[in-house]
Design a protein around this nucleic acid. Structure first.
Lengths: 196, 196
DNA sequence: TCCCTATGTTACCGATCGGTAACATTGTAG
DNA sequence: CTACAATGTTACCGATCGGTAACATAGGGA
């Protein structure tokens, strides 16, 4: 594994577990099996390293969206359900610490920080995608539905820390399934009451 | 205003705007119109100051819950609606930065940190309260409903940063109203489709 | 062999941070 | 006035941090 990649992986691991501001470049270099000098030969500054790490996460998420749209072409309902299931699966693997990008946003209050823009742009793109999906899925108020989805998915990461990951994950897919099933059979939310 | 309180207010303001780790004790003392020495005569350490600040926030929230329960005694549905409306109102006043406690949790990864326990205990208490409310409100699956509420309310703070505060706030109360109206008339979610 | 590139090593810089000691100042109650 | 308690001032400590300079080492291709 090339040095640069090892540094990014080590940095990501430490950033996520100890917080961006809670870890120094020296610790990152050591965790990557190298030293500070080499790190600074690949990244101009710690902030640039942070930004590059965030860019990697965002790129990975966008890739996943590509997979999802390719897999469920012409079936936005199934796409939304799959999305919630993947999120729930990730929740189960996420111990203690909440959303990576959410935490990063909390730790980088400076609006000028390069990483902030990357995250916000990505969230805006994601939201637009969800609105489009909800429109295609036949929701009568696609923006409302998309905001509901976003709130649920984002909130799941926060709640999972204090309530259980398993329960939150299961209920997340349960609610999303209900919403989607509801649009599938035009006569809406017939079984929603039984579940709630 | 007594010194100790001024320090707590100044600290809270700076913590929220610049991040806990992004502000030094000297800046806090100056913002409070005093100096570092006096600060350390009231707080044993920065971590204790953080913990005390968090205790204040949590106490304020618990107080608000007392108000809510006193105001809507015997009417859990109205309570939940009022809760969502107050949250939406706070969202409108929250510029850029997300949930204060959520950010604090992200900035204090150490499980041993005194402030962490305070936040987590509070969230657990809050969740139990919401479960009890959902049971009283007649939801068929109170735990599922409570988790849904929690995800929505928590997620609203995250989403408000990238989508608009106003829109998220409005949609939050809209969805909560639908859920609550649904339990009021046993015949469930009749108008939910029209809205979504 | 020679050289060039990538990486490691060490030492260091200036800044900032949390926290403390010693002393000066102020204001108020008796 | 005096005495005491609260607050301000200054200077400092040790640790850590982000970042750099200078030099050593290694390894591979010509």
């Amino acid at each position: 594994m090339p040095v640069r990649e090892r540094i990014l992986v080590a940095a990501g691991d430490l950033f996520h577990r100890q917080g961006i501001r809670g870890v120094g470049v020296e610790a990152i270099a050591e965790a990557a099996g190298t030293n500070k000098m080499t790190l600074y030969r690949y990244f101009a500054s710690k902030d640039e390293l942070i930004a590059e790490w965030v860019r990697g996460i965002v790129a990975h998420k966008e890739e996943e969206w590509k997979d999802l749209t390719a897999k469920h072409v012409g079936n936005p309902q199934a796409l939304l359900q799959d999305w919630s299931r993947r999120t729930a699966a990730k929740l189960r693997a996420m111990e203690e610490r909440g959303s990576t990008l959410g935490n990063a946003l909390a730790e980088l209050p400076d609006p000028q920080h390069p990483a902030r823009r990357v995250i916000q742009d990505h969230k805006v793109r994601e939201h637009k995608r969800v609105v489009r999906l909800c429109k295609a899925a036949g929701f009568q108020d696609p923006v409302l539905a998309a905001n509901l989805f976003s709130m649920l998915l984002e909130g799941a990461h926060s709640c999972a820390q204090c309530i259980g990951m398993r329960q939150i994950g299961e209920h997340l897919v349960q609610v999303v399934d209900l919403m989607v099933e509801n649009t599938r059979q035009q006569q809406i939310m017939a079984e929603y009451p039984t579940a709630l």
